[in-house]
Measured scan of single mutants.
Amino acid sequence: WIARINAAVRAYGLNYSTFINGLKKAGIELDRKILADMAVRDPQAFEQVVNKVKEALQV
């Protein structure tokens, strides 16, 4: 799951650890299995999560 998430978030200019930190700051409580599945099956929803994380990180 970690490898999938890392590959997906790198397309948005983040790395895995920064993304996970941003999830916590944004108050998003999705587990890694769901995030990895979302990255593959629903990229639009995953992009929305990434955008919320970037807002929380102020990137």
Rank of each mutant, 00 (worst) to 15 (best):
A39S: 11
G27K: 13
I28T: 04
G13S: 05
E55L: 10
Q44A: 10
N6V: 05
G27P: 02
L14H: 01
Q48L: 12
A11N: 11
N51E: 10
P43C: 03
K25F: 09
Q58Y: 09
A11H: 10
N15H: 11
K52W: 08
N6E: 15
S17K: 14
A45Y: 09
I5T: 01
A36W: 13
M38Y: 06
I5W: 01
K54F: 10
G22M: 03
D31Q: 05
T18E: 08
V50G: 00
A36N: 02
S17E: 15
G27M: 06
A26F: 02
N6P: 01
I34W: 13
A56Y: 10
W1E: 15
A3K: 14
S17T: 09
G13Q: 06
E47D: 07
W1S: 14
L14S: 01
T18L: 14
K54R: 10
V40E: 15
V50Q: 01
N21T: 10
V49P: 00
V9S: 02
I5A: 01
N15S: 13
I2Q: 07
A56D: 04
A56T: 10
A26G: 08
V53N: 00
N6F: 03
Q58W: 07
Y16S: 05
K52M: 06
V53T: 05
L23D: 00
I34M: 13
V59C: 05
Q44P: 12
L57M: 11
D37V: 06
S17D: 15
E55P: 03
M38D: 01
L35F: 07
I34R: 10
E47N: 08
K33Q: 14
N15G: 08
V9P: 00
L57C: 03
A39I: 11
V53C: 04
Q48M: 06
L57R: 02
R32S: 12
A56W: 07
L23Q: 02
A11D: 12
Q58S: 15
V9D: 00
P43I: 08
D37M: 05
Q48H: 13
I34F: 12
V40G: 14
F19H: 00
A7V: 13
N6Q: 13
A39F: 08
L30H: 05
I28F: 07
Q48P: 01
A11R: 08
L35M: 06
P43Q: 04
K25H: 12
I34T: 14
E47I: 05
K33N: 12
K25P: 09
I20A: 11
R10D: 11
V9W: 01
K25A: 14
E47F: 08
V9M: 04
L14K: 00
Y16P: 04
A45F: 08
A45K: 13
G22A: 04
D37L: 05
W1T: 15
A56L: 05
V49K: 02
K54H: 07
Q48G: 14
V59N: 12
K54Y: 09
Q48F: 11
S17G: 08
K25I: 11
E47Y: 09
L57P: 03
Q44I: 13
R4K: 14
N21D: 11
N6Y: 02
K33H: 13
F19Y: 02
A7D: 15
K25Y: 06
R10S: 14
N51T: 11
N6M: 08
F46V: 01
N21Q: 14
K25S: 10
L23E: 01
S17Q: 13
M38T: 06
V53F: 01
G27H: 14
G22V: 02
A11L: 12
N6H: 05
Q58F: 14
N51L: 14
A3D: 11
Q48R: 12
K54W: 06
